[in-house]
Write a protein that binds this DNA or RNA. Structure first.
Lengths: 153, 153
DNA sequence: TATTGTTATACTCTATAACTATA
DNA sequence: TATAGTTATAGAGTATAACAATA
């Protein structure tokens, strides 16, 4: 058993916690919050989507999506449009404000990321990057196997 | 501007998200949840504490602590005891069950951490560790300066 | 019948403000 | 006066279940 693993885990959680708090604080006055930003981000990546698709991808209930889309719509970031072929469904699309906002977020994320690693030299960066990739992959294996074990028949 | 920073940031957030979901899922049936575990963890580290101290350390309201301690007490993890010298205050202490639980958590965390870095060699581990330390320190600087700017006089 | 989205309801975590008991 | 804890109230995010419209 490698004791460095536990310290690395601690550090990861600490870092994530600080980043999340910083992000949450930055939403003040925008009509956004973590949950809405996750949805906004998904719309940016996947483009116009039905609420069912959003619910599945985010792993939350359709009822929850209804509320989140309401929130984005109320603040002008997204809007509901009729689905062209399925009259049961709605397509959630980014408005102009939504598109501008995600562009700003992409830039902000890039800048924040680059500031985060200021002071690391190229070699350190490379090692950090590959190390995190390895951890992410390992984590995916671990949680997947645990999930499958517990959700067995 | 270094584009690797953004990818590292993405990876960090992904990893943290997976770990959090895995942890949250593991609490099923224990009467615990993220908020209560944070408090349990703090009691483990700091020992018996007043609710005011817990509120300050966790950065939440005293009313919130009341509810969380209620939850831990209801499930047998902690109990309220009178403060020996200040009759306004209560000391929240871990019960035997609480102590056992945090011991199990410490071991589980160590094991999970070591599994997480299985497959990395000593050199990779060292680089990952120091890289994360550097990022955590940088992050602390960044959020501190941003907070001070925004919360000016 | 099955699916899409909404509504009704409930639970948890959180905050602020008013209150009691004590310092 | 000030502090420790509780209660009342409110708001957000989440879930499940029942429902209407459509496929």
């Amino acid at each position: 058993m490698n004791s460095q693993g536990a310290e690395i885990l601690d550090r990861l959680m600490l870092i994530a916690d600080l980043i999340n708090k910083d992000m949450a604080a930055s939403f003040a006055g925008t009509g956004l919050n973590m949950a809405r930003v996750h949805l906004l981000w998904l719309l940016h990546h996947d483009g116009a989507s039905t609420q069912q698709a959003l619910a599945r991808t985010l792993g939350v209930s359709p009822a929850n999506i209804t509320g989140l889309v309401d929130g984005l719509e109320r603040n002008g970031y997204a809007e509901r449009r009729p689905h062209p072929t399925d009259r049961r469904a709605t397509l959630v699309t980014l408005t102009e404000r939504g598109t501008e906002t995600t562009s700003v977020m992409v830039r902000g994320r890039a800048e924040f990321g680059s500031r985060l690693v200021e002071g690391l030299d190229a070699e350190q960066l490379r090692w950090l990057h590959t190390g995190l990739d390895a951890v992410a992959e390992r984590l995916d294996e671990l949680t997947r196997s645990r999930r499958d074990t517990q959700e067995g028949p």
